[in-house]
C-alpha cells in the first residue's frame, strides 16, 4: 500500500450509494498486473455479468470481493463501507481480520468447482454456516436450508453426500449453501464451466429464478454468452485487467463499439 489513502472517502454517503464500489483497485502478482486501477459501481439489486478472455482479471474481481485475495492499491466499498480497509483515527488503514469477517457476511460466493464439503450431506452443507457462524439453532438452520434446497430443486437429495450428486446437482446445493447465509451480494464464478452441457440449464434456471424473485445484487463471471445476455442488467467486457467496454446486454452483444469486444464475441460465437 504505497499510495496516499487520503484521496479515498472513509465511507460513501448520500442517496443511491452503490452496493459495491471498486475505486482505483489494482492487483498484482509479482510484476504481473492482473487488475489495473479498476473503477466499477454495482447498484443494489443489479445483475452484472463479467465476460472476457481468460487472464483478463474477471475472476480476480470476485475473489477480491469475497476477500479471498488481498488488493495492492485502491479501496473496495460494500454498502458504502470500506471492505478492504477500515477507519482508524480518521484515516483508512488495511482491514483487521475482525473487520473482514463482519464485512464478509454481506457476501456469498459460488465456485466453478462447487467446493461442497464432501463429508457432509447436502443439508449439512447448507446448515454449516447458519449453525456455526450465525448461531441459529439446528432446527432453525434446518428449516431455512430445506426451504432453499426446495427452491433449487434438491430437497429429495438432502441426505446425499456430494460424491453421490452430479455436477449440476452439486452446484445447486452450493447455491443454496451460499444463500443460507442471507448475503446481500452473490458472486457466481464460472459456475457452469465445469458442468456437462446437458446439465448447465439446471443451474442457469436457478440463477434466473433468483434474479426474478430476489432483490439480490449479483456479480457473475461466465462464458455462457446467451445466458449473460438473457439475465444481466449490465455486461462488462474485461481485457488486460481493465474494463474495455460495458453496457446493457443487447447493446454490448449486438452492437459492440470496441474492436477487442467485437473480436472476442466473434471468437466465442464461432467456438459455439
Amino acid at each position: 500500500m504505497t499510495e496516499n489513502m487520503e484521496s479515498y472517502p472513509l465511507s460513501l454517503e448520500g442517496d443511491g450509494i452503490p452496493m459495491v464500489r471498486f475505486q482505483n483497485v489494482t492487483k498484482r502478482y509479482g510484476s504481473l498486473v492482473v487488475l489495473n486501477q479498476l473503477d466499477i459501481d454495482v447498484s443494489a439489486g443489479e445483475m452484472v455479468t463479467i465476460i472476457g478472455p481468460s487472464g483478463s482479471g474477471k475472476t480476480t474481481v470476485l475473489r477480491m470481493l469475497m476477500t479471498l485475495e488481498t488488493i495492492d492499491d485502491g479501496v473496495i466499498y460494500v454498502e458504502g463501507e470500506p471492505l478492504t480497509h477500515m477507519e482508524r483515527n480518521g484515516r483508512l488503514v488495511p482491514a483487521s481480520s475482525a473487520h473482514l469477517r463482519r464485512m464478509r457476511s454481506k457476501i456469498g460466493m459460488c465456485f466453478q468447482h462447487f467446493n461442497l464439503f464432501p463429508h457432509m450431506t447436502a443439508l449439512g452443507n447448507c446448515m454449516e454456516g447458519p449453525v456455526q457462524v450465525l448461531g441459529l439453532s439446528r432446527k432453525e438452520a434446518e428449516e431455512r436450508s430445506l426451504e432453499l434446497l426446495d427452491m433449487v430443486g434438491m430437497i429429495e437429495k438432502r441426505d446425499q453426500h456430494p460424491s453421490r450428486l452430479s455436477g449440476g446437482q452439486q452446484q445447486r446445493v452450493a447455491i443454496a449453501r451460499a444463500l443460507a447465509m442471507r448475503p446481500k451480494v452473490m458472486l457466481f464464478d464460472e459456475v457452469t464451466s465445469a458442468l456437462d452441457p446437458e446439465v448447465i440449464s439446471e443451474v442457469t434456471s436457478v440463477i434466473k429464478h433468483l434474479v426474478d424473485t430476489h432483490n439480490l445484487t449479483m456479480l457473475m463471471v461466465t462464458h455462457q454468452m446467451g445466458f449473460a445476455k438473457e439475465i444481466s442488467d449490465r455486461v462488462c467486457f474485461f481485457f488486460d485487467g481493465a474494463i474495455e467496454e460495458q453496457g446493457a446486454p443487447t447493446k454490448l452483444f449486438e452492437n459492440p463499439e470496441r474492436e477487442r469486444t467485437q473480436q472476442f464475441l466473434n471468437a466465442v460465437l464461432h467456438a459455439n
Binding site: 469475497m66 457476501i107 456469498g108 465456485f111 454449516e128 454456516g129 457462524v133 451460499a178
Partner: peptide, 20 residues
C-alpha cells in the same frame, strides 16, 4: 477450494480446522 468455501460462508479459522 475447501478453505475458500469455508471462508465464503465466513467460518472462523478454528471452526474451519475443526469442522472442515
Amino acid at each position: 477450494g475447501q478453505w475458500e468455501a469455508a471462508k465464503a460462508i465466513n467460518l472462523p479459522i478454528v471452526t474451519t480446522y475443526r469442522r472442515i
